[in-house]
């Protein structure tokens, strides 16, 4: 195994920073969208469902390209941001947006699975005990879908760590700025003599994934134990 350079270490740090930020930023909207899809009936629900799940079926490069068009100077969100003095394209924040967009359907699906496992009569019981909808959301739905939220967050985090296609389109592959582990591996693998370094970063990637999965398992077990009280 070869020694990591400062550029590699920065890529690892950036990967973690981007994945963590994407996960945290996606949690509140992910929870709300899952709640809407699980508990509310409204016109256009199917449309919302299709839209949310679109990133699962589209190639990430396509998503990245759309994001680039939107966040660039020619897209209206990009123009608005530009007017406010904010430029997102080719920054680590753009990588966060790319990762969040790609991982969002996975998060929503997991949280939704958790929410749909709640017996509707438990919600009815809470209503009859004087609990309003927002109250039920925070005192019943949120705690009872904790396992789904945790699973969704882990999936989102892991998926964000591995994000490549959309990130390279919208954030580029700039060392110390937007270069994450997958992008660094790509650069090593496509340059002569970089195989060893590519392998080292692969091992780092596997290690982080294993740690995330272990953390997820142990937290899930803890929640389960507490639930069984």
């Amino acid at each position: 195994m070869m020694q990591l350079t400062t550029q590699d270490i920065e890529a690892i740090r950036l990967s973690l920073q981007i994945a963590l930020t994407a996960t945290i930023v996606s949690l509140p909207p992910g929870f709300m969208v899952a709640w809407l899809l699980s508990f509310r009936n409204f016109r256009g629900k199917v449309l919302l469902e299709v839209f949310i799940n679109l990133p699962l079926t589209l190639p990430p490069v396509v998503i990245g390209y759309f994001l680039l068009l939107m966040l660039g100077r020619n897209g209206w969100p990009g123009r608005l941001l530009d007017a406010a003095g904010i430029q997102l394209v080719f920054t680590w924040q753009a990588a966060v947006i790319a990762a969040a967009t790609i991982g969002f359907p996975l998060m929503v699906r997991s949280i939704r699975l958790g929410m749909e496992s709640i017996n509707p009569q438990i919600i009815d019981a809470a209503k009859s005990l004087g609990s309003s909808k927002p109250d039920i959301l925070f005192t019943i739905v949120l705690p009872l879908s904790l396992r789904g939220i945790l699973a969704g967050s882990s999936l989102m985090f892991a998926r964000s760590l591995g994000e490549f296609g959309a990130t390279i389109m919208v954030a580029g592959n700039i060392p110390f700025v937007t270069q994450t582990i997958p992008l660094a591996i790509y650069e090593y693998a496509s340059s002569p003599g970089g195989t060893g370094m590519a392998m080292t970063l692969c091992i780092v990637s596997v290690t982080i994934s294993v740690i995330v999965l272990f953390l997820h398992e142990s937290l899930t077990r803890r929640i389960q134990r507490e639930a069984e009280g």
């Binding site: 009569q121 009859s128 005990l129 004087g130 309003s132 009872l144």
Partner: peptide, 28 residues
């Protein structure tokens, strides 16, 4: 329903699984 003040007891107890007996009792 939460303003009707009609208490419900179901066939299955439908207790809140994440709360203790005391917290269940005091919920309403």
């Amino acid at each position: 329903p939460h303003r009707r003040r009609i208490g419900l007891v179901f066939q299955q107890a439908m207790l809140f699984p994440h709360l203790s007996v005391k917290s269940n009792l005091y919920y309403g």
